[in-house]
Design a protein around this nucleic acid. Structure first.
Length: 232
DNA sequence: CTCTCGATGGACT
DNA sequence: GTCCATCGAGAGA
């Protein structure tokens, strides 16, 4: 295999997402909205080797503590929400509507509730595996495009094989890891959070302005022209 | 114990 | 736009 001699020399070679550092716990131990914004462009990975699946975060939402009526933590540290009051840097996974799971990252310091809901990813690795998981148990023959595989919180969990058993897992562990972003944060847009009735005016949903992998077609159609989106 | 309903997704009018 | 599958958490009796 002929290759140009000069290629083997030291070339800085832009690091790929695979070479990015695993985000430290301190990344999560900050204000939840800051963490949510900073997570856009970072990479979620699950599994290893043949089971590796990864995607770039393009949509996320911030959920606060007792002061945020839309948050599970609004009613204090109940059995489900207690993990949001615990130390940062772990996964909070719950079942919604009896059939979909939602992946969150716990934020803030121990004793203060906060979490970021990961809503959509742009697939980077393990596309075939994700497609297989998404196809399981569905009866529509149509193949899913790559951009659909991890669009929406429930779909994303299905594609990555995440369920309630993942609740409490470290975000730096062997099964689940989050890697730092390559380069600067992309331009973002902020909108109200999806599907919440309480505190609907808070623009705590953040999206990569350039990504076509974000969810929320309904909301977009429901508010023609006047979408409450603003650049951040 | 019962009752309600949800940080959704997919099929359908 | 509407309907609904499906189940655990939370609230209340």
């Amino acid at each position: 295999m002929p290759s140009r001699p000069s290629e083997s020399a030291r070339r800085p070679a832009a690091p790929t997402w695979r070479e990015q550092a695993v985000l430290p716990i301190a990344f999560y131990g900050r204000d939840t909205r800051v963490v949510a914004r900073d997570l856009i462009g970072c990479v979620v990975t699950t599994g290893n080797g043949a089971t590796l699946a990864a995607g770039r975060i393009v949509e996320a939402e911030a959920y606060g503590g007792r002061e945020d009526p839309a948050s599970h933590a609004a009613r204090g540290p109940t059995r489900r929400a207690a993990i949001m009051f615990g130390p940062p840097g772990v996964a909070y996974v719950y079942l919604i509507y009896g059939l979909n799971h939602c992946l969150n990252f716990v934020t803030e310091r121990d004793g203060v509730a906060g979490a970021v809901l990961i809503r959509s990813l742009e697939p980077l690795a393990g596309v075939a595996l994700m497609a297989r998981r998404r196809a399981a148990g569905r009866n529509s023959p149509g193949a899913l495009s790559a951009r659909e595989l991890c669009r929406g919180p429930g779909n994303l969990c299905r594609a990555l094989g995440i369920d309630r058993r993942w609740n409490g897992l470290s975000l730096r562990g062997p099964r689940l890891r989050v890697l730092a972003r390559q380069g600067p944060r992309p331009p973002l847009i902020a909108t109200p959070r999806q599907g919440v009735r309480a505190a609907a005016e808070r623009p705590w949903r953040f999206l990569d302005a350039a990504s076509g992998c974000v969810s929320g077609a309904r909301a977009g159609a429901a508010a023609p022209g006047g979408r409450a989106r603003r650049r951040v």
